[in-house]
Simulated scan of single mutants.
Amino acid sequence: MVSSSTPEKSPLTPPIRNIFRFKTGSRRPYRSISPYDFDGALPGVVSPPPKAPRKVPRSPFKVLDAPALQDDFYLNLVDWSSHNVLAVGLGNCVYLWNACSSKVTKLCDLGADDSVCSVGWAQRGTHLAVGTNNGKVEIWDALRCRKIRTTEGHGLRVGALAWSSLLLSSGSRDKTILQHDIRAQEDVVSKLTGHKSEVCGLKWAYDDRELASGGNDNRLFVWNQHSMQPVLKFSAHTAAVKAIDWSPHMHGLLASGGGTSDRCIRFWNTTTNSHLSCMDTGKSGGFLTHL
């Protein structure tokens, strides 16, 4: 394990002491809000007083320095685990930053012939998937800093990853989505085709019933657990669909964000196959992370 106080030097990467340096400032309390309000109340129930609008700080409370972070819209190089550990792909290496201890660990180095294109934590536990420019998917036990498996099957870079409880899905520039089961001997248990361009967004629903995928073809697809073709197709976006998220509170509620020339966040009901609403953000909606 490598900490920020005892950096490990490598000729292929910048010194760890220059990575994830942060500044501490004032931190305001966070209050979650929902975009959905209910009109009216049950008979005999007194409605609570309206909440004051949430104030979003204009300045961050931490700033992490991340040299060699690729400026590429289609890559997914940052992911936060349920154990409060941030994984970041920098060049051909993956680093972990523990938000509780501020400790920095260099998890892996792919070598000079490959680079990191995506990282994705399993929903629970300490497994981290790493998608590479050469089309491979590596699965690491981050707690032990040990590689568990390397899977192949993609012909081009793997820029999108998404875990369900049992499967790991990987999306590639080769236009395909591969399903991996780390319990199975085979590298790939199924292959999903339908996008006409690079798959840059993937997200499993919280109940593992549906997988949403977004592509550089401006399409948003929904797949079920057993489908080999998309069961729903949405084409309202006018730019690449990278940002995708499911509501953890309402089954079938899906949000998607389009790129710079689209600027919209759209809400969908996959149960009724309907478009619910659209919000123009006035800038790129491609970085939506959570509802």
Rank of each mutant, 00 (worst) to 15 (best):
V189S: 12
D208N: 14
S115N: 08
S197A: 15
L107E: 04
R157A: 14
A205S: 15
D114C: 02
L161C: 07
T193C: 15
R183I: 03
V130R: 02
V94L: 04
G125I: 01
W121S: 02
L156Y: 13
T151E: 09
K175C: 14
W204I: 05
L202T: 08
S102G: 07
V137D: 05
C117T: 08
A212R: 03
R183P: 03
R144D: 13
K103A: 15
W121K: 01
G153H: 04
N133D: 13
H127A: 11
L178K: 10
I182P: 07
N98P: 01
L96S: 09
T193W: 00
D208I: 08
I177Q: 03
I148L: 15
C100M: 13
L86D: 09
C117P: 01
E152G: 11
E138K: 01
D181A: 08
R124K: 15
C100P: 00
R209M: 12
E186M: 05
L156V: 03
E198I: 03
C100K: 15
H154F: 11
V188C: 13
V189F: 12
V130A: 07
L90G: 03
G91R: 05
N133P: 00
D181T: 06
T126M: 12
I177F: 06
I182G: 00
S118Q: 07
F221L: 10
H195Y: 09
H180S: 08
G91M: 05
S115M: 07
K196W: 09
G125T: 07
T132Y: 06
S115Y: 11
A205M: 09
V88R: 02
L156A: 12
G125F: 10
G91K: 04
A212M: 03
W163F: 10
I148F: 07
S170M: 07
V88F: 01
W97K: 13
K203E: 13
R124G: 12
L178T: 03
A162L: 03
G214D: 08
K103S: 15
Y206A: 01
N133A: 15
S164P: 05
C117M: 11
V189R: 08
E152R: 09
L202K: 03
R157I: 03
R173M: 11
D217Q: 05
D109E: 13
G194A: 07
L128F: 00
L167T: 10
C145Y: 05
W140E: 06
Y95E: 13
S164M: 04
T176L: 14
G171P: 07
A212K: 02
C145P: 00
H127K: 12
I182Y: 09
K147P: 05
